[in-house]
Design a protein around this nucleic acid. Structure first.
Length: 209
DNA sequence: TGCCAGGCCCTCTTTAGGGCCTT
């Protein structure tokens, strides 16, 4: 069973292109349905946190001022992840911050496959869920909660539990031994009704389950 | 100067608009 790295960022806002920066990162390594590694750190990017964000995340200016520099934390996070394929909830958000913060390091980082996304996968697999917020999906699946929502490690743990659920459901429904990252990417890219066809074509193309 | 996300997905759609989701 190959590991995947489930990541969650807390940030000062929605867009690194508009100057927003990461304030906290957490990474959970998942093998099958088992968590085998965790990384979590606040980071100091030298930017102010707005009152809205402070209330939303519980991360204050005092907390990040006491944290290690963002470059140091991101370098350590990159070493922790290595070449492990990555997953996040609404992954386009976390992937943008991952790439933007790593780009600031100025060093070469290993090429990685695209992030798999538990939000896109849930839209494909659970059309009856209604809401696709991380907390709503956790309630829908009765996943265990682990700490304060909107803190990086708690959200990464919930996203990892959601991914384990998704992988388990795919294994059961399609009689798979395991669910490769590449298959998750195929499924999240397919239209909802085309998911079974996408899975069949993945294995007919010569990939082994 | 002032303003500013980006991508997905549904529908009263495709020569578009608006809601959702992440902080």
């Amino acid at each position: 069973m190959k590991p995947v790295a489930v990541i969650d960022f807390e940030t000062t806002g929605l867009s690194p292109a508009l100057g927003d920066r990461a304030t906290e990162v957490a990474i959970v390594i998942l093998e099958g349905d088992q968590v085998v590694g965790r990384f979590q750190s606040l980071m100091n990017a030298g930017v102010r946190i707005s009152p809205f964000i402070e209330a939303y995340t519980g991360i204050s200016n005092e907390m990040v001022q006491a944290a290690p520099p963002a470059e140091e934390v991101m370098a350590e996070a990159a070493r922790f992840v290595g070449a492990t394929p990555m997953v996040a909830h609404n992954a386009s958000f976390d992937q943008r911050f991952w790439e933007a913060e790593l780009e600031r390091l100025g060093s070469d980082t290993p090429a990685q496959p695209p992030f798999a996304c538990t939000l896109l996968l849930s839209r494909r697999l659970y059309p009856e869920a209604g809401s696709y917020k991380l907390g709503s999906l956790a309630a829908f699946h009765a996943l265990p909660s682990s700490g304060r929502a909107h803190r990086a490690l708690a959200d990464a743990e919930v996203a990892a539990a959601l991914l384990a659920r998704i992988q388990g459901d795919l294994q059961r429904d399609y009689e798979l031994e395991h669910v490769p990252h590449e298959l998750l990417l195929k499924v999240q890219k397919a239209q909802r009704k085309a998911v079974p066809k996408a899975i069949r074509s993945y294995f007919q193309a010569g990939s082994k389950p």
